[in-house]
Design a protein around this nucleic acid. Structure first.
Lengths: 136, 136
DNA sequence: TCGGCAATTGACTTTTACGTAAATGCCATG
DNA sequence: CATGGCATTTACGTAAAAGTCAATTGCCGA
């Protein structure tokens, strides 16, 4: 049972569909292709994006929100891919993954600290409002 | 007891001390001053950074690691400051803080997802190593 | 007073991540 | 078959966030 046709999972997405879904421009998607982050197939000159491309775009957007550069995102995407066959490569990959995770853990610490400080700032505002006799 | 002099809390830091501590250039600190993020006092033309400036720089670096732009960092720093006196301003401030917190919560979700995927990627590598009969 | 080093200033350059415009292709529809 | 509507390619533009470089300038100890 191959489940091809008009099922839940689309075969292909057009570039405009994806620009709408992710709220980015066609220029940006073409840029990501130039950068080697995605490789949509072609029908003639027209790009056809598969679900795997769509998933990659999702990961790219996530990386962007976290403040990673295109190069860093490229590295992270590499890590998601199938592990290499050679032992040295595998060990290197594990090392890189561990580094990136340490990076993310630092970001998490930064994030929690910032959230805490914003908590305090908001509370100070609320208290100030209370002092002014404002019924929230 | 004013605790001035060679105590634990320094009165002033020089620009080079801070460039070493935070691993940034003097150009960068001057840039932040131009941008109004810090206001070191002057002795003659020389900048003297107080502990409060140092703390601000710490916050700036945190914001940078989280991928915030200079403008966003400026906004966040504003939020840490003393709350305004006027009710309308206070309510606006609270709204802005809540928005920024939502932003940070999104980042946290992105972060956890990315960490999870890197976990899986690393595990796949480790398994592959095991398959190859490598004793970790 | 002089040498030297640290700090400042200002101008110019660089990198990243796209935006924008112009010219053209492809194709369905009336 | 002309028209509209996306798509594509190529080329140049740009804003943010510094980096780099050169020319002072201030200050401190000998």
């Amino acid at each position: 049972m191959s489940r091809s046709g008009s099922g839940v999972v689309r075969e292909y997405y057009t570039i405009t569909e994806l620009t709408r879904e992710f709220d980015i421009s066609t220029r940006t998607l073409r840029f990501y292709e130039d950068e080697g982050l995605i490789q949509p197939v072609r029908r003639g000159r027209t790009r056809l994006f598969r679900p795997s491309d769509r998933h990659l775009i999702r990961q790219i957007m996530r990386g962007k929100r976290l403040g990673f550069s295109i190069n860093e995102i490229r590295e992270i995407i590499q890590m998601y891919k199938d592990p290499p066959g050679e032992v040295g490569q595998l060990k290197l990959m594990i090392k890189r993954i561990e580094e990136k995770r340490e990076d993310l853990r630092q970001k998490r610490r930064d994030l929690e600290e910032t959230l805490t400080e914003l908590d305090n700032a908001e509370e100070a505002c609320v208290e100030r409002l209370a002092e002014l006799g404002v019924n929230t």
